[in-house]
Amino acid sequence: MSRELLKNIRIKEEPKLTAKQMIIQLAIYFLLGAFLGVIAKYSDTVSSNSGIGMIFDIISNTTTRLGIWVGLATFIAVWSENPKVAAFKVFGFFAGLLIAYYIYSQMLFGFFPTYYFLRWGAIALVSPLAAYIVWFSRREGGISAICAALPIGLLLEQGAPFFYGYSVVLGFDLFIAILLLVILPKSKIQYLLVVPLSILLAFILRSSNILLYLFGGL
Rank of each mutant, 00 (worst) to 15 (best):
M1E: 10
R3T: 11
R3L: 13
L5F: 13
L5G: 06
L6E: 05
K7V: 00
I11M: 12
K12P: 01
K12Q: 08
P15L: 00
L17R: 12
L17T: 10
L17N: 07
L17Q: 12
T18K: 00
A19G: 05
A19C: 05
I24K: 14
I28S: 09
F30W: 15
L31N: 07
L32A: 10
A34M: 00
F35H: 04
L36P: 12
L36F: 10
V38D: 10
I39Q: 09
A40G: 03
Y42T: 03
Y42F: 13
S43T: 05
D44S: 07
S50H: 02
S50P: 05
I52F: 13
G53M: 00
I55G: 09
F56T: 05
I58K: 11
I59R: 03
S60E: 07
L66N: 08
G67E: 12
W69E: 03
W69Q: 06
W69L: 04
V70R: 01
V70P: 15
G71F: 13
F75E: 09
F75W: 14
A77E: 07
S80A: 11
E81L: 09
N82R: 10
N82I: 01
V85T: 14
V85R: 15
V85S: 14
V90T: 11
F93M: 01
F93D: 08
F94T: 09
A95Y: 11
L97Y: 07
I99P: 01
I99A: 10
Y102H: 11
I103T: 14
S105D: 11
Q106D: 09
Q106W: 15
G110R: 03
F112V: 00
P113E: 12
P113Y: 05
Y115D: 09
Y116G: 04
Y116P: 00
L118H: 03
L118V: 15
W120Q: 12
W120T: 04
L125Y: 03
L125N: 06
P128N: 04
Y132C: 00
V134G: 02
W135H: 02
E140N: 13
S144Q: 07
A145I: 07
A145W: 10
C147K: 00
C147T: 03
A148E: 00
A149W: 01
L150T: 14
L150G: 09
L155K: 04
L156H: 13
E157D: 10
G159F: 00
A160P: 05
F163C: 03
G165M: 07
G165H: 12
G171K: 07
L174M: 09
L174I: 08
L174S: 03
A177K: 04
I178V: 12
L179R: 06
L181H: 11
V182F: 11
I183A: 15
L184W: 02
P185D: 14
K188Y: 03
I189R: 15
I189A: 15
I189P: 00
Q190D: 10
Y191M: 07
Y191T: 01
L192W: 13
L193W: 04
L193G: 07
V194E: 06
V195A: 03
L200T: 14
L200W: 08
F203W: 15
F203Q: 14
R206E: 11
R206H: 15
S207W: 12
I210D: 04
L211M: 15
L212A: 14
L212T: 14
F215I: 04
G216Q: 08
G216C: 02
L218F: 06
L218M: 12
